[in-house]
């Protein structure tokens, strides 16, 4: 569905992404993991032309991004930002209606209103539909933004840290909604995530970024290892496995300073997990249930 090859991106002189390549299959949820500043958001924004990579290519449905007009792309890809500027008091309904922009002229058809209504319903926003967005809580705004992306009727959803401002129940609701959409409509979703456990629970594939490099990629169980988490996040963690899902239990900050991690050997090659598995330095052996 989306494949990127040897992607490089830099802001002015600061290089953010270096030689990142991977593929997202149709019907798949892929999570981008990595600490702040590792390039998750930047990578996500390269998928729908918000940012333009200096080198490398992005292909959506086999077509290079350069050949797809912005409007056509907006019918293919919906985007949910991490935090949204709210300048003027639009109603919830009007905000979700913006998602129909790629599909309509000045006038709306009943069809468009039906879709907006259905999107509001699927994110449990119907009772708020005539409230102003400025009056809503952070979690409600997040759901409005997701509803707007759904109103685009896209085949691909990009979500930038969709759960970071939500309470426990809404985190699960949003993830279940996204997972449900992906499975029922055979959509594809790419998420930048901070919550390792939600990522492990809901993702088909995880891509871990480390200082702009693709550190490793694959099934949650193979990517979320003690060694990887120590190297990428600088955190000692234990990994549990229960009912087929992986759980990360962070213990403490690793001894090495985060800045000193750069000389760890990194593995930019995708899907070559064997090279980066296991601890990078001799550590007192600790049992994990992995």
């Amino acid at each position: 569905m989306i494949s990127i090859h040897h992607l490089h991106f830099s802001y002015e002189k600061r290089s953010v992404l270096q030689d990142v390549s991977f593929t997202v299959q149709e019907g798949e949820i892929l999570s981008l993991l990595g600490p702040n500043g590792s390039g998750k958001t930047t990578l996500l924004r390269c998928f729908n032309k918000i940012l333009h990579p200096q080198q490398g290519s992005v292909q959506v449905k086999g077509q290079p991004l350069g050949l797809i007009s912005l409007r056509e792309l907006a019918k293919l890809i919906g985007y949910v930002p991490q935090q949204e500027a709210v300048t003027f008091p639009y109603s919830v309904f009007e905000t979700v209606l913006m998602g129909r922009r790629p599909h309509v002229g000045w006038r709306l058809r009943t069809h468009d209103l039906d879709i907006v209504q259905a999107c509001l319903r699927s994110l449990n926003l119907e009772h708020l539909s005539h409230r102003r967005v400025t009056e809503l809580s952070g979690g409600e705004r997040q759901r409005v933004a997701i509803a707007r992306a759904l109103a685009q009727e896209p085949q691909i959803l990009l979500l930038d840290e969709p759960t970071s401002s939500l309470d426990l129940r809404h985190q699960l609701e949003v993830m279940e909604t996204v997972a449900g959409l992906v499975k029922s409509r055979n959509m594809t979703a790419v998420l930048a995530m901070h919550d390792l456990n939600l990522a492990a629970r809901f993702s088909d594939q995880i891509v871990m970024l480390h200082h702009g490099h693709l550190f490793c990629a694959g099934h949650p169980g193979t990517v979320l290892t003690r060694g990887n988490i120590r190297t990428v996040y600088g955190v000692e963690a234990e990994i549990y496995r229960r009912n087929g899902f992986f759980f990360v239990h962070p213990l403490r900050c690793a001894r090495t300073a985060r800045g000193a991690q750069t000389h760890y050997p990194v593995c930019p090659a995708p899907n070559r997990l064997d090279q980066v598995l296991g601890p990078q330095r001799p550590q007192p052996a600790k049992k994990t249930e992995e």
Binding site: R45, N48, K49, I50, S69, L70, R71, E72, L73, A74, K75, I77, G78, Y79, P81, E84, A85, V86, T87, F88, Y90, E94, T95, M98, G99, R101, P102, A145, R148, A149, Q152, L158
Partner: peptide, 14 residues
């Protein structure tokens, strides 16, 4: 309308 939601969102709306 799209621009009021920010440049990133506007781009994603075409």
């Amino acid at each position: 309308n799209a621009l009021s939601a920010g440049d990133e969102v506007a781009t994603s709306l075409g």
